[in-house]
């Protein structure tokens, strides 16, 4: 199967959108058939399933309701598997299409904020912390709240998804204040 590609070798946004949509619907039907009461692509749940590993060194966490929720979810094994398979999908896609380009920090970041790896890693660690905390508090990330929550027209997801962009845009503007074509 040869999918229509754009000049830069990427799939068209429409192609990608339809594939993800079909995937979301197919998994939803399968999940409901198996009577799992959660959204199928809970990428947040996948991160949650890694977090449950902390209950081994810190045994007190085994009693924690959130850790228990992620450990005992009927879809826990699916979520855990997805950590690896999403990464594998990215790896295979990059390798097959010869754009596998390992890098320590993004080149655009380097250009505007200097080559310090430590600086980028500290920012990323803090950003990740906010991402994880925000995702569980909003009960879903971009996949759960937008790709699926918006498709259900859930009031909660419409609010959550819109607020992702409010602060996202503000932070992007702070990091790249002058970018907008003028500097190119």
């Amino acid at each position: 199967m040869k999918l229509k590609q754009q000049k830069n070798g990427e799939w068209h946004w429409f192609t990608g959108g339809i594939i993800v949509s079909l995937l979301a619907m197919a998994t939803y039907v399968v999940f409901q058939a198996l009577s799992y009461k959660s959204y199928p692509f809970g990428i947040t749940a996948s991160f949650g399933s890694i977090t449950t590993l902390f209950k081994y060194p810190f045994t007190a966490l085994a009693e924690n309701p959130i850790i228990q929720k992620y450990s005992n979810s009927p879809a826990a094994l699916i979520s855990t598997t997805m950590i690896f398979s999403v990464a594998l999908g990215g790896f295979v896609a990059a390798k097959l299409n010869k754009n596998y380009a390992p890098e320590l920090i993004p080149s655009v970041w380097k250009k505007y904020h200097g080559p310090s790896v430590l600086k980028r890693f500290i920012i990323v660690l803090f950003g990740g912390f906010l991402l994880g905390l925000g995702a569980v508090l909003a009960s879903g990330c971009t996949t759960g709240n937008i790709l699926q929550g918006w498709a259900h027209l859930s009031l909660g997801s419409l609010v959550a998804g819109a607020s992702f962009f409010i602060t996202g845009i503000i932070v992007a503007k702070i990091l790249y204040p002058k970018t907008g074509g003028q500097q190119s």
């Binding site: 912390f129 991402l131 909003a138 009960s139 709240n145 259900h152 009031l155 992007a172 990091l175």
Partner: peptide, 23 residues
């Protein structure tokens, strides 16, 4: 299975967005 609306959606969403901007 629509997700209910609560303050966590707004506050969590804003925190998440800031993280997404940094990352």
């Amino acid at each position: 299975n629509p997700k209910p609306l609560d303050w966590g959606k707004l506050v969590g969403g804003l925190i998440f967005g800031a993280g997404m901007g940094l990352l």
